[in-house]
Every structure is written in structure tokens, then in C-alpha cells.
Design a protein around this nucleic acid. Sequence first.
RNA 1: GGAGAGGUGGCAGAGUGGUCUAAUGCGCACGCUUGGAAAGCGUGUGUAGGGAAACCUACCGAGGGUUCGAAUCCCUCCCUCUCCGCCA
Length: 422
Amino acid sequence: MLDPKLLRESPDLVRAAIAKKHLDADVDAVLAIDTTWRAQVTEVEHLRATQKSANTAMAALPKGSPEFIAKVQEMKAVSAAVKAKEVELKETELHWHAALLTLPNLPHATVPAGKTPEENQVIGGHGTPVEAKPHAVAHWEIPGFEHLFDFGRGAKVTGAGFPFMIGEGARLVRALLNFFLNENAKAGYVEVSPPIFVNAASATATGQLPDKEGQMYETLDKLYAVPTAEVPLTNFYRDEILDESTLPIYRCAYTPCFRREAGSYGKDVRGLNRVHQFDKVELLKWVHPSTSYEELDKLRLDAESLLQKLELPYRVLLMCGGDMGFAQAKKYDLEVWAAGQQRWLEVSSCSNFEAFQARRAQIRFRSQASGKPELVHTLNGSGLAIPRVLAAILENNLQADGRVKVPAVLVPHFGQEYLSFG
RNA sequence: GGAGAGGUGGCAGAGUGGUCUAAUGCGCACGCUUGGAAAGCGUGUGUAGGGAAACCUACCGAGGGUUCGAAUCCCUCCCUCUCCGCCA
């Protein structure tokens, strides 16, 4: 959510942001509702002030006196007016709030113009995308794959996209999780194991609600299975005022993530490329506004270092205005090369939300300078998502003899040097 | 799951229909005092919205209701605690 004051004072900034993100939002309509809302607030507050002063006067009068009774009669009209106007105001307020939620975050000045994924800028990376060797195949075609990742039985027991991970498959996942969490701890992120269901208020604060409820699994108790640990992590400090000296705060969390992925189809969803339940380690930062871009670069480098240590070729994309998302001010994607499919797979997305989420979630800090609460900036990024990293390891490290070489840094966690698919 | 008791400012805690603009205490900040400190004394100390400002308005777990008027009465929900039951 944007600052209503920014909208009032600089509507052109907001228009420019919408244009850069190639989104459709009616700034004038929001401004019109804002004007109506402010007029109604003033009206209701005047009526309430009348009521209050009458109340004070009545307190001093004897209860049954003619003056008192006259005053009661007089105030009945005001009371009715307050009620009527308050209903109107509440109605307007709902529309006003909903209207504000249609306005996207402003993209940072360094975000490149562009509309499509092709216009994202490749700004870095590591390693070289290897050409397909004769024996290279997509990971789901590796002989024995189904012994480690059983999609068939997962479909029987739960549904499509809920694979069982078995034996070496399960252990490799666990090795990756341990590796990621340990590395992140070394980089200063405190590990958190959060609830994996959240309530509607939390899902709203991070932007899953309203509008995107179709992408989450919902329980009878109106709880949502988390689509990412970002949701419970960010909400940890919802409605709190932090001490400035505690910033920046770094946290990381492993959770399973649940996504309905309604509407996905085709090659994108084969094998481990896209599943409904997957494991991910998420990095999260709450920082002072003056440092958030510095912190974004550091966050991205932390995620990159994981891929480097796994010796996986990857590239870094700076997302263009049209492909960066509604809430982000700046976003990088890390894409890992999968030699069997000969394509890039997104394994991390590192974003600065500036105060956009913090305003919704009301996460603030008390500024030493002003003595007043100010909104923090929030940032998050995957560090990292397991299935696609797994896919890349399987495809890139597949040997001619059908075994898969385990990255050296995982061997201590995994306990053997090769996957044998046995 | 059953029964009961609760939820008030940073914390403790009073307030059961009307200047509540929420007592009092603690904490915190500043000042006086002091060689310095403690004690003592004094002053101040929440968040949000509207307004150029003066100032006004809202907020006593959340949401509704009754009333001229609600922290206070009624309803629904959430959470905490105690006891019982069940259980990894």
C-alpha cells in the first residue's frame, strides 16, 4: 500500500509508476474517493464534537430537570445524524481502502523499462551453461528417478504435484536444507521455525489477500497453508514498533510451501519444475529505510553464494518494470541452468518492498532522530527453493554411467559422493 | 472437548452509564537539588486520522447492539489463565 499523502501530493509519481509497471490502475478514481472520504470524516467529526459538548453539559444538569429532558430530545436528532453519516463514512472507507490497494508500489529509479521477461537485464552470474552431453536428459527421465521422487504414488495419496521423496531423494533434500540453513546462519540470519498456517490478517498484510486466495490452500478454520515462509516471517513483527537499535534484523526459515498453481500447464510443470508442495528456505530482513538498497544487494549476494558453493551455473536478472510484480520496488531473480532441459530455472527472487508491506503490516521503528515511529523497509529472498536446485543438480551432474555426482559441499551432509538411484 | 476466571497506557493496576481529556504506583525523559550520585521535589511521557494552524476526532482484546451519552450494559468472536478430559 502506498502512502495516501504521496498520492495526494504527487499523483504524477504514482501515474508514472503504474506506466512503468505496465499495470492498469485509475489514479483519478482513487483521488476522487480520497476527497469524498476526507469530506465525510470532517462532517462526522463535527457531529461527534457537538455530541460530546452536549454530553458534558448534560452531566452537570439534574437528571430529571426540564432542561435535561429538552437536551435529550434535542440530541436525538444529532445522534440519528451521526449514525447515518457513520454508515456512509464506513462505506466510503471500505472503497477508499480497496482503491488504495489497487495502486502498485513505485519502482526504484534503477529498475529498467520494459514489459516482457525478455526485457529483464542479465546483470551477472557465475559458471557457464553447459551444452547438453549425449547422455543428458530432463531429470524426470533419468532412469530410477521415480525411485527417489515418486509422483505416481503422491498423486494416488494426495493429488498431482505432491511427490513422495524417498531414500536418497529425501536425504538429498535434507542435506540441502541443512546446508542452506547453516550457510545462512553464518551470514547472520537467525533461524526461525514458524507456523505453516496463517490467518487472514497475516495473508492480507503480505499481499496474498485479497485477490490471490485462489493460489492458497485454505482450511475449515479459515487458515491458509503458507505459500512461502515470507508470510509468517514478515508478520512476526506485525503491529509492532521496534527499537531502532535492533535494525537491521536478519531471519531465515525453512518451511514446506503450498501453492495451488491453478492454471499452470505443460512443460513448465513436469517433474520437479513446479509442484504444489515444496521445501524452501526463505531469507527476510527488516531494515532502516536509509540502508535498504545496500541490504538488497547483500541479500542477493548471500543467495548467490549458495549457488556458487553448489557449483551450479546461474545468472542474475534485474527485473524490468513490467515483470517485477505489484508490491516490489526492485527485484532480482536468480536462475539456475538445467543442462538436461537446456533451460534456466528460477530458484530465488530477491526483492526490496521498501515500506509497501510494512505499511500494510504496520511494522515500524522509533526513529532516534524524530522520536516518532516510522515504517521499516522489508526485503526477502529465497535462500533457496529446493526442487529446482535439485533438478539442476540431477541434470548437470548426471554422469555417463547414470549416477549423479553430489556437490562437494553436500557430501558431509549427505554421506556419500554419488546418487546411485538404488 | 467440558467447567470456571479474566483481557484497561511501556509495565502493574483502579475505574460497573455522564467533564474518563482514564486515578494511583512503577518505569522512562528533562529540570531543581548535590562535590558526584541516590533519595526527594517539579514537569513531561501512547497510537492513528483530519486540518495551513489553533485545534478537533477516534482507540480500554475484535466486531456488532442498546442509549441523548458506553471502558462500564447486551450479543458474537478471538486470546490468556486455572481445573478436568484426551493425547505426540
